[in-house]
């Protein structure tokens, strides 16, 4: 009696699964039948329009995206490490400053920070950041990422056991020698995966540079795609820009996971 009940419940589950597959397949078939493939091909996969942007897509847009991201990333690393060391300092005001910084810049949308940086030349007409838009982009991306990196570095430094510092100091190393030779090398291994993730986020945030007001030689991928789309009245270039982002972010994300796995195995 109970066996037949058991079997019937299994049969029912099997039937429900078949229905789900069936509905999914029907939806795909219907979409394929009724979609306007001609329009889709013309407006999203228009290869002749995609080709129009070709040399500049790489020589200007991708190049600028990489430049904005990398400079911002390194500024963020330097500022983030400084903030992390301040957070762990024995001097209380340093800790407060670092904490307030992290709270503010982690809580603000990156867009707001960029809009504020973009408004600086309007408020102080004589004042210009070194590097112009490049300087402003580096500053904006650095300020945003430093808040996250400070927390990452702090966690990494704190994850190194206390005995490591004690052992180094017992050998007569100074505090800074111990930091450089013993603590920071171990902390870096811990923070490489989260830093790689931060780099992925920063690649995407670099699109906000478009709010700084850029010339045609300063455009990055998102603005480049948007401008081209407007010029040709066709959104294909936006899709192309999107693909360029994925070309960078997917391998980077994969790399981050590999590093994470590798380091957790090595421990």
């Amino acid at each position: 009696m109970s066996e037949t009940k058991l079997r019937s419940s299994r049969a029912r589950r099997e039937m429900i699964r078949r229905i789900q597959y069936g509905v999914l397949a029907a939806a795909i078939v219907l979409a394929a039948l009724f979609a306007d493939w001609k329009a889709i091909r013309q407006f999203f996969f228009n290869t002749s329009i995609a080709r129009e942007g070709l040399p500049q897509l790489f020589t200007i847009a991708l190049k600028n995206t990489v430049v904005y991201t990398i400079t911002g990333f390194f500024f963020g690393i330097v500022l983030g490490l400084a903030l992390a060391l301040m957070r762990l300092s024995s001097v209380a005001p340093y800790r407060w400053i670092a904490k307030i910084y992290v709270e503010i810049f982690r809580g603000l949308p990156a867009l707001v920070i960029f809009l504020m940086i973009g408004s600086v030349p309007l408020v102080f007409p004589g004042f210009a950041l070194p590097g112009g838009v490049y300087g402003m982009a580096c500053l904006g991306l650095g300020l945003v990422s430093a808040a996250y990196m400070a927390e990452t570095f702090r966690a990494g430094l704190q994850a190194v056991p206390k005995g490591q510092m004690e052992a180094a100091r017992s050998l007569g190393m100074t505090n800074s020698q111990s930091m450089r030779s013993v603590i920071i090398p171990q902390a870096i291994r811990i923070v490489i995966p989260p830093l790689t993730n931060e780099l992925v986020l920063l690649f995407k945030d670099s699109s906000l540079v478009l709010f700084l007001g850029v010339t045609s030689s300063q455009v990055e991928l998102a603005k480049f795609g948007n401008d081209q789309a407007a010029a040709f009245a066709n959104p294909t270039p936006i899709l192309v820009s999107g693909l360029m982002y994925l070309l960078i972010t997917i391998p980077l994300g994969y790399l981050a996971r590999r590093l994470e796995l590798h380091l957790s195995n090595a421990r």
């Binding site: 056991p161 005995g163 490591q164 004690e166 052992a167 180094a168 013993v182 171990q186």
Partner: peptide
């Protein structure tokens, strides 16, 4: 040290 504290 009790826990050796070698540099890993």
């Amino acid at each position: 040290f009790q826990q050796f504290n070698l540099f890993p």
